[in-house]
Design a protein around this nucleic acid. Structure first.
Lengths: 192, 192
DNA sequence: GGCTTATAGCAACTCTCTTGGCTTTAGGAA
DNA sequence: TTCCTAAAGCCAAGAGAGTTGCTATAAGCC
C-alpha cells in the first residue's frame, strides 16, 4: 500500500493545497510507491523526485537525504489512524489490539518503514509510534479499571506486548497471530 | 571500543593468518574505528579501504556495500564472548544478566551496530544475537530447574526481558539499570 | 490589487563512488 | 619445489548523485 497523498500526519501544512503541500504529498506518494515496488535499497532522491514530478533540488533542500525522507514517510505511515478495539472487556480489547498490531507490522512494507525508523534510532531520541502505542495502552487500561477489572500497567502492556512484536518485526524474526496471543497471555498473568 | 582485529566470529577463515583473513581483520578494524569516531553516517567503502590499507575493489567485491559490511561487523561485535552469570540462584542470574545486557547495548556504539543489523532486518531472516540470547536463557532456566526453582520459559525470558531492552536501544528510547530491573521483576511474576 | 517572502524550478558543474578487465600475489596441494 | 587457484591489487573510464547560484512563482498580508 502506497502512502496516501493526503496523509500529512507530521508536517504542519500552513495551508492544505498550497504549493509546498502539493510537493510534499507528491514526494510522499512517490516514496510509498517505490517502497511498495521493492526499490527501497536502490531508491535515490533524483528517482523519487522524478516520479513525484518535482525538481530534485526541492527534495534535497527539504529533506537532505533518502534516510531522512524515508523516516518521515515512515512516521506518517506508522502513526496513521487505527482505532482502538472496544469489546467490552479489557481482555478482549488487548487481544484484539495485539493481533491487529501483529497483522499490521508483519507486512513487508511495514517492516521496511519500521526499519527505516529504527536505523535512525527513532526520531530525535524518541519514537512517535511508541508514544502512540503507549497512549493507546493507557486508554485501554483506564477503560478496564473503570469497569473494575484488574489490568497490567500501561508500561507493562507496551513493554511485554508491543516491544516483542516490534522487535520481531524489525529483526525479521517470525511473528504472527499465535505469537501475539502468547504475549497477551503472559501479560495477563501479570495482572493476576 | 573498536572491533578487535582478532574477532572473526562469522567468516570461516580457511586458515587464520592467510591473506584474506588479514584483509578482513584490517577492514573490520577500520570499520570499528570509524564507527567509534562517529563517522557511521558518512562512512564509505573507499574510506574504509583506505584506513584498512586495502584496495577499495577488494572491499567492493567481498562485501558489496557499506550496509552489508557494517552488519557483518555488527554481528561479530554483538555475538562476541560474554559470560553467563552464575550467582547460585535463577533470580540472581537473571538480574545480573539483564543488567549486563542493558549496560552493554545502551552504549552508543552498540546502538549503532544494533541499528545496522535492524535496518537489514536481521540477517537473512534471522538474527544471530537473538539466537545467542535465547540459548543463554535456556541455559539459565535449565540450571534453575535443576536446582528445583520455578522459572519462566526461555521464550518468556527473551520476549519479556531481552526484546524490550533491544527495542528501546534500537529506537533510542530511554533505558538503563532501573528499566532492566523492572522487566526482570515482571518476568518473575510469570513464574509464580 | 500590489508587495514580501518563502519555496520551487532550472542548469551547469563537480566529485567520488562504483565497475570491469587485467595482472600479481600467496596459500594449499601434489 | 613447483604448480594451481582463489583472492587481492591496480588502473582507468563512466555514471549518477549531490551542490550551488540564480530566477520564477505563488502564498499570505497590507
Amino acid at each position: 500500500m502506497a502512502v496516501s497523498a493526503s496523509s500529512h500526519a507530521t508536517a504542519q501544512a500552513r495551508r492544505p493545497g498550497g504549493r509546498s503541500a502539493r510537493v510534499r504529498d507528491a514526494v510522499y506518494t512517490a516514496v510509498g510507491e517505490l517502497v511498495g515496488e521493492g526499490h527501497r535499497d536502490t531508491m535515490t532522491i533524483p528517482q523519487v523526485a522524478e516520479r513525484a514530478g518535482v525538481n530534485p533540488t526541492s527534495v534535497y533542500r527539504r529533506w537532505g537525504s533518502v534516510e531522512a525522507l524515508l523516516s518521515e514517510v515512515a512516521v506518517a505511515a506508522l502513526t496513521g489512524d487505527d482505532s482502538l478495539p472496544d469489546t467490552g472487556t479489557f481482555a478482549g480489547d488487548l487481544k484484539a489490539w495485539a493481533s491487529a498490531i501483529a497483522e499490521d507490522i508483519f507486512r513487508p512494507e511495514r517492516g521496511i518503514y519500521l526499519r527505516a525508523l529504527a536505523s535512525r534510532g527513532g526520531l530525535d531520541g524518541s519514537c512517535p509510534c511508541w508514544e502512540h502505542r503507549l497512549r493507546q495502552a493507557e486508554k485501554m487500561a483506564e477503560r478496564g479499571r473503570e469497569r473494575g477489572e484488574r489490568t497490567p500497567t500501561p508500561r507493562q502492556i507496551v513493554d511485554h506486548v508491543v516491544a516483542p512484536l516490534y522487535h520481531h518485526a524489525v529483526f525479521g524474526l517470525p511473528g504472527g497471530a499465535a505469537y501475539a496471543e502468547a504475549l497477551v497471555a503472559d501479560v495477563f498473568a501479570l495482572a493476576q
